[in-house]
Amino acid sequence: MTALLTAAPLGAAAHQLVVFASVDCEAVTVEAKFSNGKIAQRGDVRILDGENALLSTLPLQEDGTANVPLDSVDHSGGLVIEVDTGSHDNYWILTPQDIARNCGS
């Protein structure tokens, strides 16, 4: 009976959403997949500024990605990228230093 109780939480966490965002000087590329490797095919991507104010919302594409042109958002204070699939959510933070470093400035 104890083995069943300790195994249950592990099974519940088996499909955690993993979010990754990378940036170049033109766009932020967001990738979302589950911890089992399956691509998140549906969901919303919210782009927030460094103060957590919503800047933009766009759909997650069927390949588990979304692209956000840098010139479409104020990224001077960094960005918080949130992905919500309806049943799972997670986020990635891009600092102003991350953005500057990847733009070579």
Rank of each mutant, 00 (worst) to 15 (best):
M1I: 03
A3H: 14
L4D: 13
L5N: 09
T6E: 08
A7R: 04
A8M: 12
P9Q: 06
L10V: 06
G11C: 04
A12R: 07
H15V: 09
L17G: 08
L17W: 07
V18C: 00
V18M: 04
V19S: 05
F20P: 00
F20C: 01
V23M: 13
E26Y: 13
V28Q: 03
V30R: 06
V30Y: 09
E31Q: 14
K33A: 12
K38C: 00
I39G: 01
I39D: 02
D44A: 11
D44L: 12
V45H: 01
R46Q: 07
D49P: 07
L54A: 05
L54Y: 02
T57Y: 01
L60S: 03
Q61W: 13
Q61L: 13
T65E: 06
A66N: 09
N67L: 08
V68F: 13
L70V: 02
L70C: 02
D71P: 02
S72W: 14
S72N: 12
D74L: 02
D74M: 00
H75C: 06
H75F: 15
S76D: 07
L79V: 04
E82S: 12
V83M: 00
D84M: 02
D84F: 04
T85I: 09
G86S: 09
S87I: 11
H88P: 02
D89G: 15
D89P: 04
D89R: 15
N90G: 06
Y91P: 00
W92K: 15
W92I: 02
I93M: 05
L94W: 09
P96F: 12
I99T: 10
N102Y: 13
C103V: 03
